[in-house]
Simulated scan of single mutants.
Amino acid sequence: MFKDEFGLYPIAVIEHHLLAQTDKVNLSTYDICKNLNELWGSLRKEEREEKQLIDVDFILKINGLVAESLNITPRKTFKDAQAWDNVIETETQEFSISEDKYHWRCWMFSELYWNQLETLKISTCWFFYNVFNLTYGLPEEWLVMGKIGDFLDSLSGSGPPLFDGQTFYPEEYCGK
C-alpha cells in the first residue's frame, strides 16, 4: 500500500481537479500523489544556493519535473521572466530575503501562481515554497485536506484584482 510520506494528497486532489478542467488528466488522484511524493523525495535532497532558488530557470526546472512526473508535456514558460527578475532585483535591494523570509515565500508563491506560471501551478508553487523553506532552514509545510477550501479562498484573495501576496499565508492551512 502506498503511503503519502510527505502529505501531498491535498495537493494531488487540487491538481487532479485542475487537470480535469483541461482534459489533461490521465492519472488518478492516488497516482498523482504517488508521483509527487517520489518527485519531492528527490527534490528535497538537492543542495541549492539562495540565488539559484529564485532564478527563473530553477523554478521552470521544478515545473518541468512536476509535468514529467504527471505524464504531461512540460511547457516550461514563464509569462514574464523579465518582470520576475526586475521585481526580485528591486525588492532584494531594499530587503534581503533572509531578513524577511516568511513574507518573501508567501509573496513569491502568490506571484508565481497568479502572474508567472501557466501550468501545474499548485504543485510547482508548493514545491518551490518547500524548497525555499529547506534552503532557509524552515520546516516543510503541507496543506491539510480539511483546509483546502480556506486555502483556495485565501489564494484567490491574493490574486486579481488586488494581487496582494503580502496578505497570503499558506502556512495557516498546513499541518502534519
Rank of each mutant, 00 (worst) to 15 (best):
L18P: 01
L18E: 13
Q21V: 03
T22W: 00
T29E: 15
Y30S: 07
C33M: 04
N35D: 14
L36D: 07
W40I: 03
S42C: 07
R44A: 14
R44G: 09
R44N: 13
R44Q: 15
K45G: 10
R48N: 05
R48D: 06
E50N: 06
Q52F: 00
Q52W: 01
L53I: 04
V56K: 04
D57G: 12
N63G: 08
N63Q: 15
N63T: 06
L65V: 02
V66T: 07
P74Q: 06
F78N: 05
F78A: 10
A83N: 12
T92Q: 09
T92W: 03
T92V: 12
Q93N: 11
R105F: 02
W107V: 13
S110E: 05
E111S: 09
E111R: 04
L112W: 02
W114D: 12
T119A: 14
T124S: 14
C125V: 00
W126C: 05
F127A: 08
F128V: 11
Y129Q: 09
V131F: 02
N133P: 13
G137F: 03
G137L: 08
L138W: 00
P139D: 09
E140Q: 03
W142E: 11
L143S: 11
L143H: 09
G146S: 15
I148M: 10
L152A: 11
L155D: 04
